[in-house]
């Protein structure tokens, strides 16, 4: 059985399509990632699937329940870690977990056991009886992850679970997520704009851009699309460099993004010296060159001609989009 099935799901805000008719399926026990820049529609998708927002059109089943007609069953089947913090700072960690358990109708005896177990899982036993306002950002995130598990949901929604965390804390959180998935078999859907995160955690990834899924597969298969290695070149005249390099043999594809050039080739290490020579002969100067195996970032560039990171600079736009899906 599929844990989640989504058909033609769309959400419009004042005529602007934040999510523009997406389809995907998530198998039980899978970790599925929605990868894309800020404002691509990931959070809106999660908000719809978790019953927070009503879809403009399309349908979905979650754990076998119809999103439109069986809202309470859907809510009971899922746990959510929101992008923005959602804890009661005045309460202690344990009280936050207890509150959640009570709301979800977990019996008193079971609540005690579960709270103990999840606190152990995210290693917060010692801090459990301090008020949440004394927690660090990483600890709050861990508590939220623990809270999402109290009622033993079949599916866990993780919306940008490690946003704003330092690399070490992020690693730690990834471990917890992996462990929950392998030990409890919890299906997970997560959104992220961190390539490494999607690569490390997800069994399958859907690349999202401007409200649409533009590619969906396992991370390995997505990267294979590029074929071989990726050479990134920085040049003063990327256009003319593209013209020159495009004619060379042994090259699969050339994509321009910004003032850079991505060249994919089956055998990058022998192609790179030739590119440099050809460029030199044609009077095009190359400022820098890197050779690496393809990353999901390169996959995104391949499909959109832009880097995910470029979008981050456009924070005002992302902000506006977030305002629209906010709770107002």
């Amino acid at each position: 059985m599929n844990a989640i099935e989504v058909k033609g799901l769309a959400k419009k805000f004042n005529g602007f399509a934040a999510v523009d008719g997406i389809n995907f399926e998530i198998k039980e026990g899978e970790i599925f990632g929605l990868l894309g820049p800020n404002g691509a529609g990931k959070t809106t998708t999660i908000s719809m699937l978790s019953t927070i927002l009503k879809p403009t059109s399309g349908s979905a089943t979650i754990n076998g329940f119809n999103l439109a007609t069986q809202q309470n069953d859907v809510r009971m089947s899922i746990g959510i870690v929101f992008q923005d913090p959602s804890l009661d700072d005045e309460l202690t960690g344990r009280e936050n977990l207890d509150f959640h358990g009570r709301l979800y109708g977990v019996s008193s005896k079971e609540r005690k056991e579960k709270i103990k177990a999840v606190l152990e899982l995210v290693e917060l036993e010692e801090k459990a009886d301090s008020q949440v306002k004394t927690y660090s950002g990483g600890m709050k995130r861990r508590l939220e992850l623990a809270r999402g598990l109290i009622h033993m949901p079949k599916i866990l929604f993780l919306d940008e679970p490690t946003i704003g965390l330092d690399p070490q804390t992020r690693r730690k959180l990834w471990e917890y997520i992996k462990r929950i998935n392998s030990e409890k078999g919890t299906t997970m859907i997560l959104t992220t704009h961190y390539m490494e995160e999607a690569d490390f955690l997800c069994n399958r990834i859907a690349i999202v851009d401007k409200g649409k899924i533009i590619a969906s597969n396992t991370p390995e298969k997505l990267k294979q699309v590029l074929g071989g290695d990726v050479i990134t070149l920085e040049a003063s005249e990327p256009e003319s460099l593209k013209k020159v390099v495009g004619k060379m043999a042994g090259i699969n594809e050339v994509t321009i993004f910004g003032d850079k050039l991505n060249v994919t080739a089956n055998n990058g290490s022998t192609v790179l010296p030739r590119i440099i020579k050809v460029a030199h002969d044609n009077g095009v100067s190359i400022r820098s060159a890197t050779l690496k195996s393809p990353s999901l970032e390169d996959v995104f560039i391949h499909y959109t001609g832009r880097a995910i990171r470029e979008e981050e600079a456009d924070s005002k736009n992302a902000m506006r989009l977030r305002m629209r899906v906010g709770w107002r």
């Binding site: 809510r75 929101f82 959602s86 804890l87 009661d88 959640h100 109708g105 809270r147």
Partner: peptide, 15 residues
């Protein structure tokens, strides 16, 4: 509660 996000936690619960 709304500003600190806690309202969300309450509103998505199955009650």
């Amino acid at each position: 509660d709304r500003q600190f996000g806690f309202l969300k936690e309450i509103l998505v619960s199955p009650v």
